[in-house]
Deep mutational scan, measured.
Amino acid sequence: AIERGSKVKILRKESYWYGDVGTVASIDKSGIIYPVIVRFNKVNYNGFSGSAGGLNTNNFAEHELEVV
């Protein structure tokens, strides 16, 4: 089962992080479509409006993740 702290591989082909491994930061139990927040070591794009980097978290559905 996917739980907080799990290392997961991203299976969503259109994702910037496809094939990468991230760490589960949290799981939303409220029934939303993409409840699993995954944190990565790298950012997906340069930040804007003065922020240092881009996003390094993204929401995924459990079926888009594979525990490694």
Rank of each mutant, 00 (worst) to 15 (best):
A1N: 10
A1H: 12
A1W: 10
I2H: 03
I2T: 02
I2M: 07
I2S: 02
E3T: 13
E3Y: 10
E3R: 14
E3S: 13
E3F: 11
R4T: 13
R4G: 05
R4V: 15
R4D: 05
R4P: 14
G5R: 01
G5W: 04
S6Q: 10
S6W: 12
S6P: 03
S6C: 14
K7W: 12
K7H: 13
K7T: 10
K7F: 12
K7Y: 13
K7N: 07
K7P: 05
K7D: 04
V8M: 01
V8Q: 01
V8W: 02
V8I: 01
V8Y: 00
K9C: 10
K9Y: 05
K9D: 02
K9V: 08
K9H: 03
K9G: 02
K9M: 07
I10R: 01
I10V: 13
I10D: 02
I10M: 01
L11F: 02
L11Y: 03
L11C: 09
L11D: 00
L11V: 04
R12N: 05
R12A: 05
R12T: 03
R12Y: 03
R12L: 06
R12F: 04
R12C: 08
R12M: 04
R12V: 04
K13E: 08
K13P: 10
K13M: 06
K13Q: 10
K13I: 08
E14P: 04
E14W: 07
E14V: 05
E14I: 05
E14M: 06
S15K: 00
S15P: 01
S15H: 04
S15D: 06
S15L: 02
Y16W: 06
Y16D: 05
Y16E: 08
W17M: 02
W17P: 00
W17S: 00
W17V: 01
W17N: 03
W17D: 00
W17G: 00
W17T: 00
W17Y: 06
Y18W: 06
Y18Q: 02
Y18G: 00
Y18E: 03
G19T: 03
G19A: 05
G19C: 10
G19E: 05
D20Q: 09
D20T: 10
D20I: 11
V21R: 02
V21S: 02
V21P: 00
V21K: 01
G22L: 04
G22Q: 01
G22R: 05
G22C: 06
G22V: 04
T23E: 10
T23Y: 08
T23S: 04
T23C: 11
V24T: 00
V24N: 00
V24C: 04
V24Q: 01
V24I: 03
A25H: 10
A25L: 15
A25I: 15
A25G: 04
A25P: 01
A25S: 11
S26I: 06
S26D: 14
S26A: 13
S26C: 14
I27K: 03
I27N: 03
D28I: 07
D28W: 04
D28R: 05
D28G: 05
D28K: 05
D28L: 11
K29W: 09
K29V: 10
K29L: 11
K29I: 10
S30F: 06
S30I: 06
S30L: 05
S30T: 12
G31Q: 13
G31L: 12
G31M: 10
G31F: 12
G31E: 14
G31A: 12
G31S: 12
I32W: 09
I32C: 13
I32H: 11
I32A: 11
I32S: 15
I33K: 13
I33D: 13
I33R: 13
I33S: 14
I33L: 13
Y34P: 06
Y34R: 11
Y34D: 07
Y34C: 11
P35Y: 09
P35T: 07
P35S: 11
P35C: 13
V36Y: 15
V36G: 00
V36S: 00
V36A: 01
V36H: 00
I37K: 14
I37W: 15
I37C: 15
I37F: 09
I37M: 14
V38T: 00
V38P: 00
V38R: 00
V38A: 00
V38S: 00
V38W: 00
R39Y: 12
R39V: 15
R39M: 14
R39Q: 13
F40A: 00
F40V: 03
F40D: 01
N41W: 08
N41K: 13
N41Y: 08
N41M: 11
N41V: 11
N41I: 08
N41F: 08
K42Q: 08
K42E: 09
V43L: 09
V43N: 10
V43Y: 15
V43H: 14
V43G: 10
N44K: 14
N44S: 12
N44L: 14
N44I: 12
N44T: 07
N44E: 13
N44A: 08
Y45I: 15
Y45N: 15
Y45R: 10
Y45S: 15
Y45L: 15
Y45W: 08
N46E: 15
N46I: 09
G47W: 07
G47T: 06
G47Q: 09
G47F: 07
G47M: 05
G47C: 15
G47P: 14
F48A: 15
S49Q: 11
S49R: 04
S49T: 12
S49N: 10
G50D: 14
G50N: 11
G50Y: 06
G50K: 03
G50C: 15
S51Q: 10
S51A: 12
S51Y: 07
S51I: 14
A52N: 12
A52I: 12
A52V: 12
A52D: 14
A52P: 12
G53S: 10
G53P: 12
G53R: 03
G53K: 05
G54D: 07
G54C: 15
G54M: 08
G54N: 09
G54A: 09
G54Q: 09
G54R: 05
G54I: 08
G54P: 08
L55S: 14
N56V: 10
N56G: 06
N56L: 09
N56P: 09
N56W: 11
N56M: 09
T57D: 08
T57H: 12
T57P: 05
N58H: 15
N58R: 06
N58W: 14
N58F: 10
N59K: 08
N59C: 15
N59V: 06
F60Q: 01
F60I: 00
F60A: 01
F60L: 02
A61E: 05
A61N: 06
A61Y: 06
A61V: 04
A61M: 07
A61R: 03
E62D: 07
E62N: 07
E62Q: 09
E62V: 14
E62R: 09
E62M: 14
H63D: 10
H63M: 05
H63G: 04
H63Q: 06
H63A: 07
H63P: 03
H63F: 10
E64C: 05
E64T: 02
E64N: 01
L65E: 00
L65Y: 01
L65V: 05
L65S: 02
L65R: 01
L65D: 01
L65A: 00
L65P: 00
E66P: 02
E66C: 09
E66W: 07
V67H: 05
V67N: 05
V67F: 06
V68S: 02
V68W: 08
V68M: 09
V68I: 12
V68D: 03
V68Y: 05
V68P: 02
